[in-house]
Design a protein around this nucleic acid. Structure first.
Length: 300
DNA sequence: CGTCTTTGACCTGCGC
DNA sequence: GCGCAGGTCAAAGACG
Protein backbone atom coordinates (compact mmCIF):
# COMPACT_ATOMS: atom_id res chain seq x y z
CA UNK A 1 0.00 0.00 0.00
CA UNK A 2 2.84 2.33 0.92
CA UNK A 3 4.64 1.36 -2.24
CA UNK A 4 1.52 2.10 -4.24
CA UNK A 5 0.98 5.50 -2.64
CA UNK A 6 4.65 6.31 -3.09
CA UNK A 7 4.28 5.41 -6.74
CA UNK A 8 1.26 7.69 -6.99
CA UNK A 9 3.20 10.56 -5.44
CA UNK A 10 6.04 9.95 -7.89
CA UNK A 11 3.58 9.90 -10.76
CA UNK A 12 1.93 13.10 -9.66
CA UNK A 13 5.34 14.72 -9.20
CA UNK A 14 6.41 13.69 -12.68
CA UNK A 15 3.16 14.91 -14.14
CA UNK A 16 3.59 18.22 -12.34
CA UNK A 17 7.11 18.53 -13.72
CA UNK A 18 5.85 17.62 -17.19
CA UNK A 19 3.05 20.17 -16.99
CA UNK A 20 5.45 22.80 -15.74
CA UNK A 21 7.78 22.06 -18.65
CA UNK A 22 4.84 22.28 -21.05
CA UNK A 23 3.84 25.63 -19.55
CA UNK A 24 7.37 26.95 -19.86
CA UNK A 25 7.44 25.83 -23.49
CA UNK A 26 3.98 27.31 -24.04
CA UNK A 27 5.01 30.62 -22.49
CA UNK A 28 8.05 30.90 -24.71
CA UNK A 29 5.93 30.06 -27.77
CA UNK A 30 3.35 32.65 -26.75
CA UNK A 31 6.03 35.27 -26.24
CA UNK A 32 7.53 34.58 -29.66
CA UNK A 33 4.07 34.79 -31.24
CA UNK A 34 3.33 38.08 -29.50
CA UNK A 35 6.68 39.42 -30.70
CA UNK A 36 5.84 38.28 -34.23
CA UNK A 37 2.42 39.95 -33.99
CA UNK A 38 4.03 43.19 -32.84
CA UNK A 39 6.48 43.04 -35.72
CA UNK A 40 3.66 42.46 -38.26
CA UNK A 41 1.67 45.36 -36.80
CA UNK A 42 4.67 47.64 -37.08
CA UNK A 43 5.14 46.63 -40.72
CA UNK A 44 1.45 47.23 -41.42
CA UNK A 45 1.68 50.66 -39.87
CA UNK A 46 4.64 51.51 -42.07
CA UNK A 47 2.82 50.25 -45.18
CA UNK A 48 -0.29 52.21 -44.26
CA UNK A 49 1.72 55.41 -43.86
CA UNK A 50 3.44 54.81 -47.19
CA UNK A 51 0.06 54.26 -48.84
CA UNK A 52 -1.32 57.48 -47.39
CA UNK A 53 1.73 59.37 -48.60
CA UNK A 54 1.37 57.84 -52.05
CA UNK A 55 -2.31 58.81 -52.23
CA UNK A 56 -1.50 62.36 -51.16
CA UNK A 57 1.16 62.66 -53.83
CA UNK A 58 -1.22 61.25 -56.40
CA UNK A 59 -3.89 63.78 -55.45
CA UNK A 60 -1.42 66.64 -55.76
CA UNK A 61 -0.32 65.44 -59.20
CA UNK A 62 -3.91 64.94 -60.27
CA UNK A 63 -4.84 68.44 -59.14
CA UNK A 64 -1.99 69.85 -61.18
CA UNK A 65 -3.11 67.81 -64.19
CA UNK A 66 -6.68 69.07 -63.84
CA UNK A 67 -5.47 72.65 -63.71
CA UNK A 68 -3.39 72.05 -66.80
CA UNK A 69 -6.35 70.50 -68.64
CA UNK A 70 -8.56 73.44 -67.63
CA UNK A 71 -6.04 75.87 -69.02
CA UNK A 72 -5.88 73.90 -72.25
CA UNK A 73 -9.67 73.87 -72.53
CA UNK A 74 -9.91 77.62 -71.95
CA UNK A 75 -7.40 78.14 -74.73
CA UNK A 76 -9.39 75.86 -77.01
CA UNK A 77 -12.57 77.75 -76.17
CA UNK A 78 -11.03 81.01 -77.27
CA UNK A 79 -9.91 79.44 -80.52
CA UNK A 80 -13.21 77.71 -81.19
CA UNK A 81 -16.09 80.17 -81.12
CA UNK A 82 -18.97 77.77 -81.84
CA UNK A 83 -18.82 74.52 -79.92
CA UNK A 84 -21.36 71.93 -81.08
CA UNK A 85 -24.56 71.75 -79.09
CA UNK A 86 -24.95 68.26 -77.83
CA UNK A 87 -26.83 66.74 -74.95
CA UNK A 88 -24.14 65.90 -72.54
CA UNK A 89 -23.22 62.28 -72.54
CA UNK A 90 -22.11 60.55 -69.35
CA UNK A 91 -18.84 59.48 -70.91
CA UNK A 92 -17.83 63.05 -71.61
CA UNK A 93 -19.45 65.31 -69.09
CA UNK A 94 -17.35 64.35 -66.15
CA UNK A 95 -13.70 64.59 -65.44
CA UNK A 96 -13.88 60.93 -64.63
CA UNK A 97 -11.12 58.96 -63.12
CA UNK A 98 -11.68 55.25 -63.31
CA UNK A 99 -10.59 52.53 -61.02
CA UNK A 100 -10.64 48.84 -61.75
CA UNK A 101 -11.54 46.46 -59.00
CA UNK A 102 -12.02 42.73 -58.92
CA UNK A 103 -10.03 41.89 -62.00
CA UNK A 104 -12.28 43.70 -64.41
CA UNK A 105 -10.40 45.92 -66.73
CA UNK A 106 -11.83 48.94 -68.44
CA UNK A 107 -9.97 51.91 -69.77
CA UNK A 108 -10.50 55.36 -68.35
CA UNK A 109 -13.24 57.32 -70.01
CA UNK A 110 -11.39 60.59 -69.47
CA UNK A 111 -10.67 62.08 -72.84
CA UNK A 112 -8.19 64.79 -72.19
CA UNK A 113 -7.92 65.60 -75.88
CA UNK A 114 -11.60 66.36 -76.03
CA UNK A 115 -11.91 69.94 -77.22
CA UNK A 116 -15.68 70.03 -76.98
CA UNK A 117 -16.36 70.33 -73.30
CA UNK A 118 -19.37 72.55 -72.91
CA UNK A 119 -19.44 75.57 -70.62
CA UNK A 120 -21.25 73.83 -67.81
CA UNK A 121 -18.75 71.03 -67.71
CA UNK A 122 -15.99 73.52 -67.23
CA UNK A 123 -17.94 75.23 -64.50
CA UNK A 124 -18.31 71.91 -62.74
CA UNK A 125 -14.61 71.36 -63.06
CA UNK A 126 -13.97 74.76 -61.52
CA UNK A 127 -16.24 73.88 -58.63
CA UNK A 128 -14.03 70.82 -58.28
CA UNK A 129 -16.86 68.35 -58.00
CA UNK A 130 -14.64 65.32 -58.04
CA UNK A 131 -16.17 62.47 -59.97
CA UNK A 132 -14.71 59.03 -60.07
CA UNK A 133 -15.87 55.71 -61.39
CA UNK A 134 -15.17 52.39 -59.76
CA UNK A 135 -15.89 48.96 -61.17
CA UNK A 136 -16.88 46.20 -58.78
CA UNK A 137 -16.82 42.59 -59.82
CA UNK A 138 -19.78 40.76 -58.29
CA UNK A 139 -21.38 37.38 -58.51
CA UNK A 140 -23.55 36.99 -61.58
CA UNK A 141 -26.41 35.78 -59.40
CA UNK A 142 -26.18 38.85 -57.20
CA UNK A 143 -28.94 41.15 -58.36
CA UNK A 144 -28.55 43.81 -55.71
CA UNK A 145 -27.01 47.17 -56.45
CA UNK A 146 -25.26 47.35 -53.12
CA UNK A 147 -21.59 48.19 -53.15
CA UNK A 148 -19.82 47.54 -49.85
CA UNK A 149 -17.18 50.23 -49.87
CA UNK A 150 -16.88 50.96 -46.16
CA UNK A 151 -19.10 54.02 -46.12
CA UNK A 152 -22.74 54.14 -45.13
CA UNK A 153 -25.10 55.12 -47.92
CA UNK A 154 -28.78 56.03 -47.98
CA UNK A 155 -30.60 55.09 -51.12
CA UNK A 156 -32.85 57.85 -52.33
CA UNK A 157 -33.84 56.76 -55.77
CA UNK A 158 -33.72 54.25 -58.56
CA UNK A 159 -34.23 54.77 -62.25
CA UNK A 160 -34.10 52.75 -65.42
CA UNK A 161 -32.01 54.69 -67.89
CA UNK A 162 -32.28 54.61 -71.60
CA UNK A 163 -28.81 53.34 -72.41
CA UNK A 164 -28.87 50.49 -69.93
CA UNK A 165 -31.67 47.98 -69.23
CA UNK A 166 -30.55 47.48 -65.66
CA UNK A 167 -31.76 50.10 -63.15
CA UNK A 168 -29.50 52.78 -61.72
CA UNK A 169 -29.55 53.30 -57.98
CA UNK A 170 -28.86 56.68 -56.37
CA UNK A 171 -27.19 56.91 -52.97
CA UNK A 172 -26.24 59.73 -50.62
CA UNK A 173 -23.56 59.44 -47.96
CA UNK A 174 -25.25 58.75 -44.62
CA UNK A 175 -22.08 58.87 -42.51
CA UNK A 176 -22.37 62.58 -41.81
CA UNK A 177 -25.26 64.98 -42.40
CA UNK A 178 -22.89 67.58 -43.79
CA UNK A 179 -21.34 65.16 -46.26
CA UNK A 180 -22.88 65.65 -49.69
CA UNK A 181 -21.14 62.84 -51.53
CA UNK A 182 -23.40 61.00 -53.94
CA UNK A 183 -23.03 57.66 -55.58
CA UNK A 184 -24.71 56.11 -58.60
CA UNK A 185 -24.57 52.35 -59.02
CA UNK A 186 -25.52 50.56 -62.20
CA UNK A 187 -24.64 47.28 -63.83
CA UNK A 188 -22.34 47.41 -66.79
CA UNK A 189 -23.99 47.01 -70.18
CA UNK A 190 -21.20 44.76 -71.42
CA UNK A 191 -20.88 42.59 -68.33
CA UNK A 192 -23.88 42.23 -66.01
CA UNK A 193 -21.66 40.89 -63.26
CA UNK A 194 -19.83 44.21 -63.05
CA UNK A 195 -21.22 47.05 -60.95
CA UNK A 196 -20.25 50.55 -62.03
CA UNK A 197 -20.23 52.96 -59.10
CA UNK A 198 -19.89 56.66 -59.89
CA UNK A 199 -18.84 58.79 -56.92
CA UNK A 200 -19.52 62.54 -56.93
CA UNK A 201 -17.84 64.81 -54.43
CA UNK A 202 -15.48 64.26 -51.57
CA UNK A 203 -16.15 62.90 -48.12
CA UNK A 204 -15.52 65.51 -45.43
CA UNK A 205 -15.13 62.84 -42.76
CA UNK A 206 -13.05 59.72 -42.23
CA UNK A 207 -14.30 56.32 -43.29
CA UNK A 208 -16.55 54.82 -40.58
CA UNK A 209 -14.52 51.63 -40.45
CA UNK A 210 -11.39 53.63 -39.77
CA UNK A 211 -12.83 55.99 -37.17
CA UNK A 212 -12.30 53.64 -34.25
CA UNK A 213 -9.43 51.63 -35.64
CA UNK A 214 -6.59 53.30 -33.83
CA UNK A 215 -5.04 50.13 -32.54
CA UNK A 216 -2.78 47.82 -34.50
CA UNK A 217 -5.17 44.92 -34.65
CA UNK A 218 -7.85 46.87 -36.42
CA UNK A 219 -5.29 48.31 -38.74
CA UNK A 220 -4.10 44.82 -39.50
CA UNK A 221 -7.55 43.49 -40.29
CA UNK A 222 -8.65 46.49 -42.27
CA UNK A 223 -5.78 46.11 -44.69
CA UNK A 224 -7.82 43.70 -46.73
CA UNK A 225 -10.82 45.93 -46.34
CA UNK A 226 -12.35 48.80 -48.21
CA UNK A 227 -9.33 50.88 -48.92
CA UNK A 228 -10.08 51.32 -52.56
CA UNK A 229 -13.42 53.10 -52.66
CA UNK A 230 -12.32 55.72 -50.20
CA UNK A 231 -9.38 56.41 -52.36
CA UNK A 232 -11.48 56.13 -55.47
CA UNK A 233 -13.86 58.74 -54.15
CA UNK A 234 -10.91 61.06 -54.13
CA UNK A 235 -9.94 59.90 -57.55
CA UNK A 236 -6.88 58.22 -56.22
CA UNK A 237 -5.39 54.79 -56.06
CA UNK A 238 -7.38 51.61 -55.69
CA UNK A 239 -5.56 48.57 -54.50
CA UNK A 240 -8.04 46.36 -52.74
CA UNK A 241 -10.70 44.08 -54.05
CA UNK A 242 -13.89 44.89 -52.17
CA UNK A 243 -15.79 41.84 -53.22
CA UNK A 244 -15.79 39.92 -49.96
CA UNK A 245 -15.98 42.81 -47.60
CA UNK A 246 -17.70 42.55 -44.29
CA UNK A 247 -21.26 43.68 -44.24
CA UNK A 248 -21.66 47.39 -43.82
CA UNK A 249 -23.46 46.96 -40.52
CA UNK A 250 -20.56 44.93 -39.16
CA UNK A 251 -18.11 47.56 -40.28
CA UNK A 252 -19.69 49.97 -37.83
CA UNK A 253 -18.16 48.12 -34.89
CA UNK A 254 -15.23 46.09 -36.12
CA UNK A 255 -13.51 45.66 -32.79
CA UNK A 256 -16.42 43.64 -31.49
CA UNK A 257 -15.76 40.74 -33.84
CA UNK A 258 -12.14 41.05 -34.80
CA UNK A 259 -10.43 40.63 -31.46
CA UNK A 260 -11.87 37.19 -30.65
CA UNK A 261 -10.84 36.09 -34.11
CA UNK A 262 -7.28 37.16 -33.43
CA UNK A 263 -7.37 35.33 -30.12
CA UNK A 264 -8.62 32.22 -31.83
CA UNK A 265 -5.93 32.53 -34.45
CA UNK A 266 -3.33 32.93 -31.74
CA UNK A 267 -4.52 29.81 -29.94
CA UNK A 268 -4.53 27.83 -33.18
CA UNK A 269 -1.02 28.98 -33.98
CA UNK A 270 0.13 28.08 -30.49
CA UNK A 271 -1.40 24.61 -30.73
CA UNK A 272 0.11 24.10 -34.15
CA UNK A 273 3.47 25.32 -32.94
CA UNK A 274 3.38 23.05 -29.91
CA UNK A 275 2.46 19.95 -31.87
CA UNK A 276 5.13 20.68 -34.45
CA UNK A 277 7.82 21.29 -31.84
CA UNK A 278 10.01 18.13 -31.69
CA UNK A 279 11.32 19.03 -28.25
CA UNK A 280 7.83 19.26 -26.85
CA UNK A 281 6.63 15.98 -28.40
CA UNK A 282 9.84 14.20 -27.38
CA UNK A 283 9.55 15.41 -23.79
CA UNK A 284 5.89 14.41 -23.70
CA UNK A 285 6.61 10.98 -25.16
CA UNK A 286 9.53 10.45 -22.79
CA UNK A 287 7.43 11.37 -19.77
CA UNK A 288 4.56 9.10 -20.79
CA UNK A 289 6.71 6.11 -21.77
CA UNK A 290 8.96 6.53 -18.75
CA UNK A 291 6.00 6.55 -16.43
CA UNK A 292 4.49 3.51 -18.14
CA UNK A 293 7.80 1.70 -17.93
CA UNK A 294 8.15 2.47 -14.23
CA UNK A 295 4.60 1.35 -13.64
CA UNK A 296 5.26 -1.94 -15.40
CA UNK A 297 8.44 -2.45 -13.35
CA UNK A 298 6.64 -1.88 -10.08
CA UNK A 299 3.78 -4.20 -11.06
CA UNK A 300 6.32 -7.00 -11.75
C1' DC B 1 -40.98 52.30 -33.01
C1' DG B 2 -37.14 53.81 -35.60
C1' DT B 3 -34.57 53.01 -39.70
C1' DC B 4 -34.07 51.66 -44.30
C1' DT B 5 -35.81 50.55 -48.94
C1' DT B 6 -39.00 50.96 -52.63
C1' DT B 7 -41.30 53.43 -56.11
C1' DG B 8 -44.33 56.70 -58.33
C1' DA B 9 -44.52 61.61 -58.86
C1' DC B 10 -42.31 65.71 -59.56
C1' DC B 11 -38.43 68.80 -60.94
C1' DT B 12 -34.86 70.35 -64.04
C1' DG B 13 -31.97 70.72 -67.98
C1' DC B 14 -31.24 69.92 -72.77
C1' DG B 15 -32.35 69.35 -77.69
C1' DC B 16 -35.51 70.22 -81.31
C1' DG C 1 -42.69 75.83 -75.89
C1' DC C 2 -42.73 70.90 -75.84
C1' DG C 3 -41.04 66.39 -75.08
C1' DC C 4 -37.61 63.46 -73.29
C1' DA C 5 -34.41 61.69 -70.00
C1' DG C 6 -31.91 61.97 -65.80
C1' DG C 7 -32.11 63.24 -61.05
C1' DT C 8 -34.58 64.01 -56.62
C1' DC C 9 -38.36 63.89 -53.29
C1' DA C 10 -41.34 61.82 -50.16
C1' DA C 11 -45.02 58.69 -48.81
C1' DA C 12 -45.71 53.93 -47.93
C1' DG C 13 -44.17 49.52 -46.79
C1' DA C 14 -40.70 46.23 -44.90
C1' DC C 15 -37.77 44.91 -41.40
C1' DG C 16 -35.29 44.30 -37.06
Amino acid sequence: MDQYSSSLVDTSLDLTIGITRMRVEEDSTTNSLVDELKRVNAENKKLSEMLTLMCDNYNVLRKQLMEYVNKSNNTAEREQTSPPKKRKSPARDEAVSSAVIGGVSESSSTDQDDQYLCKKQREETVVKEKVSRVYYKTEASDTTLVVKDGYQWRKYGQKVTRDNPSPRAYFKCACAPSCSVKKKVQRSVEDQSVLVATYEGEHNHPMPSQMDSNNGLNRYVSLGGPVAPAAAANGSCSLAKPVNLTESKKVRSPSRIEFPEVQKLLVEQMASSLTRDPNFTAALAAAVTGRLYQKNQTEK
